[in-house]
Design a protein around this nucleic acid. Structure first.
Lengths: 166, 166
DNA sequence: CTGCTTTGGTTGTTGGTACAACTAACCGAG
DNA sequence: CTCGGTTAGTTGTACCAACAACCAAAGCAG
């Protein structure tokens, strides 16, 4: 059916890069989650949601937009936002102009929780990611990851730099 | 107690790199898992375990070593290997020289499952990761990730290039 | 304004991972 | 040889995410 050649194997340089990429992809989320949960009682994903909201006009965003920006499926976001709402960190309301849509808004308590969590999180990110990198390495890393993202996320929704995530 | 300064905020270049890094770390595992589960009935983590074993002498490795190489905790590996054993892809046996240790060995069926899964997986890796990268970008990515790994995984256990993972 | 399709979101279930507690084997000091 | 500590691994629980099924509002054809 798909009369394609056997794709060529990875050479040694590609293999090393690949092993390192999956190692980072596997371990980094755990590092971030562990620090945030211990010191702030937040998941890294919850932190991202709060951070996105804190930077939005009126601290308010649509669920669908949030799910794209945070690399999450909509069901996942729905569950998480419900828990955040139960904890008083976020409020939900029906959007006036489209009664299907839901606006998630960061509450004052949510903002306070984010502000309390941010310094420790930022320190962790610096320590584990940026401290060991030179400026040139940061640029090179960013460029390579950007190229990968065009394939992993063809719609190109993810990395809208809206100023504050960390 | 820890009389440290507020760590400096991320500048714009760092922010972009950071957003892209967490986007890749969040989405890439899902892409790999989805393809492998649909086409081969394997998790990416299960695939890694089988691949590590297939490249080892006698297709046999100790649980602890496997857990380090695959970036997994020991409890996680224990659960997964048990399931793989139930499916006949792996066999476990007590190590003769240390009766605490367990040797996991790839069975013939396990090797067959790996061989069947490999081409599709390799194609996915090429398509989503290496196709959009130049050789220079691969080298730069690898170098930056290596630097990050020294912090995320201080013991330096992860990326022993044992030839075959993908 | 009727019916079909698409879009936005929620809910239930299932499966996998983390964390903590536990058992068994090894090992070194007395 | 035995006793405390360490290492290797398993088991149970609790939580989080993926997937599928579902509901409601919007859009659009006729």
């Amino acid at each position: 059916m798909t009369g394609e050649d056997e794709p060529r194997w990875l050479d040694r340089a590609e293999m090393t890069a690949w092993l390192r990429l999956i190692a980072v992809a596997e371990r980094l989320p755990g590092v971030l989650d562990t620090q945030l949960r211990r010191e702030s009682g937040l998941t890294h994903f919850e932190y991202q949601v709060l951070a996105m909201l804190s930077d939005a006009p009126d601290r308010t965003l649509r669920m669908t937009f949030l799910s794209l920006q945070t690399n999450a499926t909509l069901p996942r976001l729905s569950h998480v936002v419900k828990r955040l709402e139960d904890r008083g960190l976020v409020a939900r309301s029906v959007a006036p102009e489209d009664k299907r849509a839901i606006n998630a808004m960061l509450t004052d308590e949510g903002f306070a929780a984010l502000a309390a969590a941010a310094p420790g999180h930022l320190a962790t990110v610096r320590e584990h990611v940026f401290d060991p990198l030179s400026d040139a390495q940061v640029r090179a890393l960013s460029e390579a990851l950007g190229a990968i993202l065009t394939r992993v996320d063809p719609s190109g929704d993810a990395p809208q730099d809206r100023r504050a995530t960390t």
